[in-house]
Design a protein around this nucleic acid. Structure first.
Lengths: 343, 343
DNA sequence: CTGAAAGCGCTAACAT
DNA sequence: ATGTTAGCGCTTTCAG
């Protein structure tokens, strides 16, 4: 591999000068700069990031901690994030935690050894596991970024969708359509994400003076890591639809849950939205392509990733920011699975 | 950060000895080893991977090149891959190429500067873009791994599903069910993946003595990076179903395409599978949860990732292997979107 | 504006 | 079995 020494020799200057040219240090004469740049191009030289990192104590690398793959939300955030980080010369180290403390520990340690400059975690973590103490211990005082979770610690930046507001708007939309019997299929509210959605749902009900019907509310088996969300929603829908009178609308806390629900309604030949409206959450790519196209709440994951990337770059450049929390209002996307109820 | 020097001093030995202990070098007395280990634990020491990489010229890092996020296939392979790599002390650097040469170049360069030990590319690349010359140039002589593509170059290992065989079996299954009028919705055959599926489809037809009906075969607009596969399949289905007589079965080259097709059939109230069977490809998580559950071809992406991880570790340890190609037969999963045709 | 030299944290001969 | 030492490729004072 061609090194800085080779360039220096070739260009007839010292390695210090080459370094200055590479790092755009002003105090190099135009003539020298030009010559060095030529040699760099000719020899196709690219500085060794390991050596650089060792010296400067900044690796230009971001650690990305992912709990799992479940739906496209996390990959999409990742996509947007990497896009802007790469633009700015940063690389991304990836590790999965499997929602498992030991795995998380191992991953964070590997990151620490590779001297990441910042850590990003995408997705909501369990309530009990919010402590960032371990991270700070092994990583030192680097900034932590949590996408779609709220971590009330001082070194943690949070970038999240206001899922409560999203759920509130979805529910309110159904109420505005004239529905009064609205069922809610939620995930496990021990995850922030589902906890918040429940709050939004209840707030909308409350505000409209609708009373909360426990048989329209589901119990909490589904975990975030659970791929079988649709299957569970299917069962829950069956149960809920057997109440009399049954609900005329469903709000599902994820599109995956909505899909299971829709499947049940199809099988029972309950027409959507004529007999029953359905609203999901996430706007997974397939949501617009199922039958009928699903009304849902879009979280703009790629945008979220891009925003996070920009935030990281800014903080890397200018130091910590006082504002730790950045929330976005997700948008309701109305499709054919819900509709003005025929009066 | 506590360094090897701190440990050495604390333990009353030289840094060389500490290094030996850390790397399990045999020639250290049990007594010394024990003492050093104690200090390491007490000070929570973890060697600086940058320094180590600089010295040993092996970073214990794998570069992962991803074209895009489209469906869950790539994330799932990634998941399995990272799982076994991490187990073996390797980290994963992630970069997206957006199916774009310049982006790929930039990503590979960043990898090179970080001295990756191997490169993995997941997903199929365009025919014209198969050259690995650039990669080898900037990365040096490290092994290249291509998941789900076939790159006929000497330094490239290929790990792929035999998509031709998968498509063949899917089609043959429909033929065995008694179908003779089988339509095929394919993607862009300029990608290996769709090219192979077409071959499999045609081979099955041929073998059964069925003639190829051009109006049952779709033109090639869908690109791999295209999120709108379902929408296109919808249109294509419309066109194909207007031929007389219409086909009694569809094979779609991806589940995403199948979803668009199914939507069209639903809307036209064409019952699946009574009037028309549907077989997809990929077994995306949602496939089993749509209505009706989709017969499809499973590629076991997580397993594929795990296999690739194990292969990499083996090669890192024992050097290059003569066998460059590892293919797997994907399995047909029969669900309710296809069924024995009533005779 | 440029160069010499030290050193980031680690490993690997080479001594002993 | 252990220590000494040189050096991986780079940046950065400090001199000049």
């Amino acid at each position: 591999m061609t090194s800085i020494k080779a360039i220096a020799k070739m260009a007839g200057v010292s390695t210090a000068t080459v370094s200055r040219v590479v790092n755009n240090h002003p105090s190099v004469s135009e003539r020298t700069r030009k010559k060095v740049k030529e040699v760099i191009l000719a020899l196709d030289y690219h500085p060794n990031a390991l050596a650089r990192g060792l010296k400067t104590r900044t690796s230009k690398t971001i650690g990305l901690l992912l709990p799992e793959i479940q739906n496209m939300f996390i990959p999409a955030v990742t996509f947007g994030l990497e896009e802007v980080l790469k633009e700015n010369g940063y690389s991304v180290l990836l590790a999965y935690t499997f929602y498992n403390d030991d795995e998380e520990r191992r991953s964070v340690l590997a990151f620490a050894q590779r001297k990441i400059d910042a850590l990003v975690h995408i997705g909501t973590r369990e309530y009990a596991e919010k402590k960032t103490g371990f991270m700070t211990n092994v990583l030192g005082n680097i900034p932590l970024f949590f996408v779609n979770d709220l971590i009330p610690e001082e070194n943690a930046y949070c970038i999240y969708n206001d899922e409560e507001e999203g759920a509130y708007r979805a529910t309110k939309y159904l109420i505005d359509q004239g529905h009064t019997k609205i069922a809610f299929i939620n995930g496990n509210p021990f995850y922030t994400s589902y906890f918040n959605k429940r709050r939004g749902f209840l707030r909308a009900l409350d505000e409209a003076g609708l009373c909360f019907n426990p048989s329209f509310y589901t119990d909490y088996k589904t975990n975030l890591q659970d791929v079988y969300q649709p299957a569970e929603a299917y069962e829950l829908a069956k149960k809920i639809m057997s109440s009399s009178p049954p609900p005329t609308a469903f709000f599902a806390a994820s599109d995956l849950l909505a899909v299971g629900l829709v499947k049940y309604l199809h099988e029972r030949k309950i027409s959507i939205p004529d007999k029953c409206s359905v609203v999901g959450f996430d706007n997974i790519p397939i949501a617009q392509h199922i039958h009928p196209p699903l009304t849902t709440v879009d979280q703009k994951p790629r945008e979220l990733g891009r925003f996070t990337g920009r935030l990281i770059i800014k903080i890397m450049k200018d130091g910590p920011l006082p504002e730790k929390c950045y929330s976005f209002i997700p948008t309701l996307i109305i499709r054919e699975s819900s509709e003005r109820k025929e009066v």
